[in-house]
Design a protein around this nucleic acid. Structure first.
Length: 414
RNA sequence: GUGGCUGUAGUUCAGUUGGUUAGAACGCCGGAUUGUGAUUCCGGAGGUCGUGGGUUCAAGUCCCAUCAGCCACCCCA
């Protein structure tokens, strides 16, 4: 294991990356707030059971992707692979049922032991929202609308498509699942090896297989809509009407399935063609059974999560650049002392200010240029004696005298 | 977990059929006389060629292993 190398699938966020991340999470937080979602933070690790009991023991996440370890007290802990389970655990732990419905926004790191590739890391970052305690289909609409508004605020909504499906309620899903298993079992010899495994673990997944032989079988497979009971059909209908009312376009995709067991009714994904194989940018759905499975009171929920790295890639160059500073350039001992004070005055006024304290004048100006300053504030003995400084704007090279006792006003850009 | 491609200065890359002191660009550092940057000119530093083995008189160039990156499958954000 090479030292001085980041752990596989992790990466450092240097200032440019960090700024892009902050841009995404800050905009998302603001937009979520306008939709009534308040930010929460839950621990990045939980007892392993929190995930094992909610994600389903056949899911890939639980069977092979969790970072699980035993702590010194002998407890089995897991670095969170996603945050819905953690937020629901917090909902139960804090007795929030009495405040339901609650609306939460979160942002933070997640961990999955997967093979890294484009848009997929072992430590990655997600933002997400959860609306817990609202059984109404309009809650689904609100959650989707919030997600869509965030994509719009980031300027990337046009690069994505909302795919929508319903998994029905428990009865519908189980009936359909049984029908699927019966159908595919009859053709098991023609299924790909992967789909044979899926037949055991998650038969709905076969519908989305990329294998050509599978696809032929899928073409004649039972259709979900035939198994949806009236309640489920009504629920989905209301969701679609809500989206229509908001002018949110969507594409129905009956093959859109969820790998995690707790989903029911609405399932949706905002996808893009611009990120290679990892096209899902924001994904979510309804999870009415989850909180009960965790041992809490039967409580419905709906939410989504989105990968900050993937969103950042879509945002690309549109992310804002760093603030350009004013660089204070003193020449002489007395000026250096004055420079400390002048920089503080600027900083107190909310202006980004730096010093150039080393080398001759030329070096200092060079430094100002290197840190992308928009102006240099030059302070020499002359100026000091007269209570002024030279403010040189670096883009046009123009220089003018400004009074030291009114620096902040003189150094505002514009 | 499976498969394909890749790994040479801080960065992006070049390195001919294996053959002497491994190159470029950009970046970095220094200089072109006095208190003015980014443009120009001159100079300099910086690489045990991912790592470990092997073949050979000789390996950055060939072979094996290992680590890492990229891409795809699986799955997902």
């Amino acid at each position: 294991m090479a030292e001085l190398q980041p752990v596989r699938g992790t990466h450092d966020l240097l200032p440019d990356d960090m700024r892009a991340h902050r841009h995404v999470s800050d905009r998302a937080r603001d937009v979520a707030a306008t939709h009534g979602f308040d930010e929460v933070a839950t621990p990045i690790f939980e007892f392993t059971n929190v995930f094992a009991r909610t994600l389903g023991d056949t899911s890939d996440v639980v069977t092979k992707e969790m970072y699980t370890f035993e702590d010194k007290g002998g407890d089995m802990l897991t670095l969170r692979p996603e945050n819905t389970a953690g937020v629901c655990r917090a909902f139960i732990s804090n007795g929030l049922a009495q405040h339901a419905p609650v609306k939460f926004f979160y942002s933070g790191p997640m961990f999955r032991h997967e093979r890294p590739q484009k848009g997929r890391m072992r430590q990655f970052h997600q933002i997400g929202v959860e609306l817990i305690g609202a059984p109404q289909p309009l809650a689904d609409v609100e959650v989707i609308a919030c997600g869509r508004a965030i994509l719009e605020a980031l300027g990337i909504a046009d690069n994505t498509v909302l795919e929508l499906n319903t998994l029905g309620d428990t009865d519908s899903r189980q009936a359909y699942r049984a029908a699927l298993v019966e159908y595919f079992s009859g053709h098991a010899d023609k299924l790909s090896q992967e789909s044979k495994d899926r037949l055991e673990r998650n038969p709905l997944r076969i519908l989305d297989s990329k294998d050509e032989g599978d696809r032929k079988l899928v073409a004649d497979a039972p259709v979900f809509s035939d198994y949806l009971n009236p309640e489920s059909v009504d629920f989905f209908g209301t969701v679609k009407e809500g989206l229509d009312a908001l002018g949110i376009a969507y594409r129905l995709n009956t093959r859109l399935v969820r790998g995690l067991d707790y989903y029911c009714h609405t399932a949706f994904e905002f996808t893009t063609e611009m990120l290679g194989a990892q096209g899902t940018v924001m994904a979510g759905g309804r999870y009415d059974g989850l909180i009960e499975q965790l041992g809490g009171p039967s409580t419905p929920g709906v939410g989504w999560a989105a990968g900050i790295e993937r969103l950042s890639m879509l945002v690309g160059e549109q992310a804002p650049a760093a603030d350009r500073p004013v660089v204070v350039v003193p020449m002489g001992d007395a000026a250096e002392r004055q420079a400390l004070v002048s920089a503080k005055v600027l900083r107190d006024a909310g202006i980004r200010a730096e010093y150039a304290f080393s080398g001759n004048m030329k070096k200092r100006m060079k430094h100002a240029n290197k840190v992308n300053a928009w102006a240099a504030l030059i302070l020499g003995d002359d100026e000091l004696a007269r209570g002024v400084a030279q403010l040189k704007t670096l883009d046009d090279g123009e220089q003018r005298e400004v009074p030291l006792d009114d620096l902040a006003a003189a150094c505002h850009r514009g």
